[in-house]
Design a binder for these strands. Structure first.
Length: 272
DNA sequence: TTGAGAGCCATTCTTCGCCC
DNA sequence: GGGCGAAGAATGGCTCTCAA
């Protein structure tokens, strides 16, 4: 009886802009750039179709595959068009993988996802900007959890077998010879949680659900983005335990809400 | 072992300067 | 004057350290 929301999608930090929300309620979802061009993912910014025509590369003037002060922006249009996507979640194959957080965090991404039971829901929110308006965090889709597996505590051979069992997952696609990306770059303390999903699930067609409120929190000087009070109350927020929950950095959120109730309130992807 | 506090840094807003 | 980009600053999550 759990709903976990995860922040996904390209944003200011990796493509230098927020994704568009159009006047008719439709929106564009574009995955973040893959950290490494060495991936089995065939979709690139030059092939990812937009709902209003064209491809994702048409929206972008720059990308930063690995956000960080030492990383340079890629501005060459041909390189942008050919850069692979970190297609996570994969709304076609209904699979989602996550490495953010660690085993000793109670409220990090991987720990919240590990707690999902079959029939629970994992939802996805992204930063969308309407024409001439401020960006907000919107729920853009979800799927029903079928199973959750992690690479924690597994031997290299076991990890290889696990990734082979989830070939459509973005973390499996960027694994090299069964070796996870974070193992290759020396971050062995990271592990990946993979959620395999089932119907009902997918990306909303239109009218994403706004999760954030934009205001100056008492005691602060600057405006911030916070979880709407109504969402926290009606969906029974369990984590994080902050009040209000700041959505600036896309935290994982957990709600004590049944999958059935969540679907009744928010509709079915494909029919919304 | 656990919780509090401090520092680091990712994210994004604001301001300012440059160019058309 | 408007648009755009760069730089600086504010916020808050994550991580580490230390004390209880």
């Amino acid at each position: 009886m759990t709903v976990v929301l995860a922040g996904v999608g390209a944003d200011q930090s990796n493509v230098g802009r927020n994704l568009p929300l159009y006047d008719d309620g439709t929106f564009e979802y574009v995955p973040i750039p893959e950290k490494t061009p060495e991936t089995d993912e065939s979709e690139t910014f030059g092939t990812w179709p937009l709902r209003n025509g064209g491809v994702a590369a048409d929206l972008l003037s720059k990308i930063r595959p690995a956000p960080g002060r030492e990383e340079e922006w890629v501005t060459d249009p041909e390189r942008i068009a050919g850069w692979p996507l970190h297609r996570d979640p994969n709304f076609d194959a209904l699979t989602y993988g996550e490495h953010r957080g660690s085993a000793d965090q109670r409220q990090g991404y991987v720990r919240l996802l590990e707690a999902l039971d079959p029939g629970d829901v994992v939802g996805f929110y992204a930063g969308l900007a309407p024409p001439g308006g401020h960006p907000h965090r919107y729920l853009i889709g979800y799927f029903t959890a079928e199973s959750v597996v992690t690479t924690a505590g597994r031997s290299p051979a076991e990890k290889r077998d696990l990734l082979a069992d989830h070939p459509e997952n973005a973390h499996a696609k960027r694994a090299d010879g069964g070796e996870l990306y974070y193992d290759r770059v020396g971050a062995e303390d990271k592990y990946v949680a993979i959620v395999e999903g089932r119907e009902p699930g997918g990306l909303f067609e239109r009218d994403p659900i706004r999760l954030s409120e934009r205001y100056v929190k008492p005691g602060n000087e600057r405006v911030g983005y916070y979880l709407r009070e109504g969402i926290a109350d009606e969906w029974d927020l369990r984590a994080p335990d902050a009040d209000p929950v700041a959505l600036t950095r896309k935290p994982a959120m957990c709600f004590d809400l049944s999958g059935e109730t969540f679907r009744d309130r928010n509709g079915i992807p494909g029919a919304r």
